[in-house]
Design a binder for these strands. Structure first.
Lengths: 253, 253
DNA sequence: GTTATTCTGGAACTTTTGTCTCTTTTGAAG
DNA sequence: CTTCAAAAGAGACAAAAGTTCCAGAATAAC
């Protein structure tokens, strides 16, 4: 995880209001309403690596990222980790538990040093009761994450790993809002945890995409060579015919 | 799909109001508000097999099932079908598109003859604007489906097919609200489309569960023999050690 | 009843993914 | 510049899932 940049972004602290306004959750609120929201929020800071909250615990509330990178993930019995998203400012998370007051549906850790604003579920309910626009925004935001999960579910159900990887590089729809780093910055381990597989498998798939001429590599970074080829792979689950020969291991050509 | 019962349920028509009241979406609304909602809804009837709406089309609105069985599904490029849920009264569907006014995120077809009440997204927005409780309910409902999708996503990411099958039989959390038929009534084809795999693979997994003594079969119906064994399998992804020998093909014992 | 259709059982095989192991490369820290 | 740890490359193998095929059983239609 070395290559996820550890430097805090500088832009935020100069204009803290803009973070609130640029979050779809608080977009379009009247000034007085927004300041009520802001005074209901508590500031929390976490060191790199620190746990923000765990899955299954009583609702940790709504979190808005001011600074830093946050990993949202689940972990299964065998210890395999599935990264649902990597988020940075002005993204928010845990809207679902904040909305229904239930347990946290996933884990959150600080990848870098992180600063978040937290609104407790009770406070959020009060705020929503007093501001129809905020409630509207919540509905919109929940609908949005919902669509993202449906998309992810279909990826896991139907798409091969090379196909998911192609999609990650294109960071289409599903990943666009969620993955904070460009794919070329991610380690293979990191990609594997996003795609729900292992490092070795990602490595193999990357070699395939290189051989097929869809990507090229410079140092450890990958760059897109053939965007339309990646799109075909992402959408159809198979390499286009005219690229198949290139994708074969060298000795079989 | 023969074995999904085609008989309409009888209970509904006698007390149409109760369907509205028993839907979490409309629970707790004041009488006048509820009747406003009801007058905003339009009744649609579909014959068995008829398309209710398609994925990607402009929002078909909020649907509340009065009678019959509805399949919610997605389909991929190669024609494989993933059944997201099988719903009957008083379930509702397409809340997400109704809430954000976007395109339908999935397909819906009538498995049996179906009667639904449909509220157009604009009308729903007006209703929500005039009733805080309805808006609250919408938030709750969206949060709920969200949790279900996170759960399904993890199933697809981490669980083997025997494990998912065990979960289907227990119809835990995720499936409890969604799967209208008891698993023993579903055809293997149907189970496969729910689990995101093929009929043959389901058949193999079922034989495994039979051999392991977790299920027994009578005619074409399966019954649970060892609930705790199924739970272990559903949660850990592997058969408990003391059952492994039983699960081996006969000639290897 | 008989026939046709749908559903199931199951073998044999291919492909994909996961696992294990090892070496090599890279970049960061001293 | 050297040393070290993390990351990547890669082969060999195992396991799981998908595919193809055909035969037999159950149910619905006639």
């Amino acid at each position: 995880m070395r290559r996820l940049s550890k430097e805090p972004s500088k832009t935020v602290c100069n204009a803290p209001l803009s973070v609130w306004e640029s979050s779809p959750f608080f977009a379009g609120l009247e000034a007085c309403s927004l300041s009520r929201v802001q005074s209901a929020a508590r500031r929390h800071a976490y060191q790199a690596g620190a746990v923000i909250f765990n899955e299954g615990e009583v609702c940790a509330g709504f979190h808005l990222i001011l600074d830093g990178l946050v990993r949202i993930y689940r972990i299964n019995g065998e210890g395999r980790l599935h990264t649902l998203s990597l988020l940075r400012s002005p993204s928010s998370f845990n809207e679902v538990a904040a909305a229904d007051g239930g347990i946290n549906p996933f884990n959150a850790v600080a990848v870098t040093n992180v600063v978040v604003m937290v609104i407790a579920p009770d406070r959020l309910h009060d705020l929503m009761a007093g501001d129809a626009r905020l409630l509207q925004n919540t509905v919109q935001a929940l609908a949005h994450v919902n669509r993202e999960y449906i998309e992810r579910l279909e990826d896991m159900t139907f798409r091969s790993i090379p196909s998911r990887l192609a999609k990650l590089f294109l960071h289409e729809t599903t990943y666009a809002d969620q993955i904070a780093e460009t794919p070329s910055q991610l380690t293979q381990e990191e990609m594997a945890s996003i795609l729900g597989t292992t490092r070795e498998v990602v490595g193999r798939a990357l070699r395939g995409l290189l051989n097929a001429g869809l990507l090229r590599k410079s140092g450890r970074c990958f760059y897109i060579v053939d965007r339309s080829g990646l799109e075909v792979l992402a959408h159809t689950n198979v390499l286009p015919d005219h690229l198949k020969a290139c994708a074969l291991p060298v000795e079989e050509i």
